[in-house]
Design a protein around this nucleic acid. Structure first.
Lengths: 146, 146
DNA sequence: CTGATTGCAAAAGATTTGCAACTAT
DNA sequence: ATAGTTGCAAATCTTTTGCAATCAG
């Protein structure tokens, strides 16, 4: 059992919540996929073959983990939200509207501009919860598809 | 009839599309609400009392206007997309996750940081299509609600 | 006239919820 | 034992789509 997986289960224990088979499986999937962008349905399918854990259970479990602060979800454009272990969430997502690829952007890369916004607008961007949409340079050339 | 309203109708004419009563009404609503954040359903309701124009018609009409480049929609967090006349869309939306208020942010305010991202990541953020979530300073103080 | 447009109803996709059965502690 | 969890089915919400009827040009 990986460290990350154990961390998640430990968070449940500390909170006095129950550790069920379904939760174990979900933890495994999350820990194994820390660099991927998984939707709740992806997680349900990976957790033990297609359909084995009900999506409602997955949503409820993910909600619990978010409440414990060990998980976040982000929205990368249209389509389902995607889930991330907290420690691997400290980056923004640059989502290309053309090709769909996602580039990770370390938080500090935007920090300076955000400082200006905080000063001038009294607003603290979270930035981790929604992707930043745009286009790769390669995808920015002449384009009649949209 | 306002200038903006006329512009929208003119865009339809130029494209050889038809000007129907429903489209006229939708144009009126859009022109009158250029500073508001309206969802498709808001627009349907305002267009002529509750339920008078079918939402599917509203969605199709808004889609046409987006295709003509005179309208954009943005996503400000969860919930429905909101629609904006193009000329009034040249700002980003700072959406407070706590109080829900939206602060408009001129594009140039983020331009500099985006320049850095373009250079370092080969990525051109669009930024206008999704809101930037975060919190007002006032809403950032101790908070146990999430 | 004729194709563009509409309304209605139904579908789709993501997420949430009610509830009875089940299980970890 | 009992409160937390699960699966299932149904509901919700936003948006899309099929289709026959209607209407603008």
């Amino acid at each position: 059992m990986s460290d990350r997986e154990n961390e998640l289960l430990e968070a449940l224990r500390v909170a006095g919540l129950r550790i069920t088979l379904q939760r174990r499986l979900i933890c495994q999937v999350l820990a194994a996929a820390s660099d991927e962008h998984l939707s709740a349905i992806d997680i349900a399918e990976r957790a033990s073959g297609p359909g084995a854990i009900d999506v409602s259970t997955v949503y409820r479990t993910l909600e619990v983990f978010e409440g414990l602060g060990v998980l976040h979800h982000v929205h990368l454009g249209h389509g389902p939200g995607i889930y991330h272990l907290s420690a691997s969430s400290d980056h923004h997502h640059l989502v290309c509207e053309k090709c769909g690829r996602v580039v990770d952007l370390p938080v500090d890369a935007l920090e300076q501009s955000f400082t200006g916004i905080i000063r001038d607008y009294g607003f603290v961007p979270d930035g981790l919860h929604f992707g930043i949409l745009g286009r790769h340079i390669d995808c920015s050339v002449v384009d009649t598809t949209d």
